[in-house]
Simulated assay, not measured.
Amino acid sequence: MFNDLFAEVSQGFGTKNYTSTVPSFGRGHEIVVPHGKLIYIPQFIDQKIADRTLDVFFENDQYAWNETNWHNVENINDLVWKNIAWHQDTIKMYGKEHTLPRVSAWYGDTGKSYKYSGILLHPKPWSPALLWMREQLQKVSEHHFNSVLLNWYRSGQDHLSWHTDAEKELGKNPTIASLNFGEARRFVLRRNDDHSDKIEISLGHGDLLIMQGELQHYWQHSVPKQAKISKGRLNMTFRQIHSPTEL
């Protein structure tokens, strides 16, 4: 499976052929890059649990997860979601409001609010399923996460532009763990000072990617459009939000 995802795995990762080693816990691939580190674990979550995750997280009062063209559903914010409070946000650009090309939800400890792109998110309380996911991550990351941003890409039309997760409340050198379910999507990183230096990973059903070190200060990442993909993808990025007194 690993060779299928990386055509040049024997030579390394990305345009600079970064090499990998097996992490100390014995699973996956640890990729050391300038100013950071990536840990990639294919099928970190068992397929049966990953399948069930999609059923539970998208349960609502009107539509079936796998039988709906979600880009034709105009009332996502009005649906009664059973387990995750999905919401499609809007941002203002050049005096006009634009709907974000993805649907999101924010969960975490009380008081751990998060602001990005002018959107202020207040956390919903942890659900048992999210707490279980967090527990699995902390076994391999040795890091405490107090919040999680869930992004739902309804099809390959939904995307995430180039950015860094370097907001002040994330603290210095944040560790961010990304769990992925549903359709595999391209995840691309590039150096801030050299856009030709790129690493691309296809993150699939149950896969885990952890970003560590100074990565957020020196590398950008994105989830580009993929027009041929018609089905959805769920991404959860677990983070640690710091209060002002902790910074």
Rank of each mutant, 00 (worst) to 15 (best):
M1C: 11
F2Y: 14
N3S: 14
N3M: 07
D4E: 13
F6T: 10
E8K: 13
F13N: 10
G14C: 06
T19H: 08
T19M: 10
T21K: 14
V22L: 14
P23Q: 10
S24I: 10
G26D: 12
R27I: 11
G28R: 12
G36H: 04
K37H: 05
L38Q: 02
I39F: 10
F44V: 15
I45Q: 07
K48W: 07
A50Y: 06
T53A: 15
V56R: 00
F57Y: 13
E59W: 05
A64I: 09
W65T: 13
W65P: 05
T68I: 04
N69Y: 00
V73G: 09
V73L: 07
E74W: 00
E74S: 15
N75Q: 11
N77L: 08
N77C: 03
N77A: 04
L79R: 02
V80L: 09
K82Y: 03
I84Y: 03
H87V: 11
H87G: 02
D89K: 09
V103Y: 00
A105S: 15
A105G: 11
Y114Q: 01
G118S: 07
G118K: 05
L121R: 13
K124M: 10
S127M: 04
L131E: 12
W132T: 14
L137S: 11
V140R: 03
S141G: 09
F145T: 00
V148Q: 01
L149H: 04
R154P: 02
R154T: 10
S155G: 06
H159G: 06
T164N: 12
D165G: 06
D165K: 01
E167N: 04
E169F: 03
L170W: 03
G171I: 09
N173Q: 09
S178K: 08
S178W: 06
L179E: 07
F181Q: 06
E183W: 02
A184D: 08
F187T: 11
L189A: 06
R190L: 05
R190V: 09
R191A: 14
R191N: 12
I199E: 01
I199W: 01
S202W: 12
L203I: 15
G206E: 11
D207F: 14
D207V: 14
M211A: 10
E214N: 11
Q220K: 14
V223I: 15
P224A: 12
K225Y: 07
K231L: 12
G232K: 05
T237A: 10
R239V: 05
L247S: 06
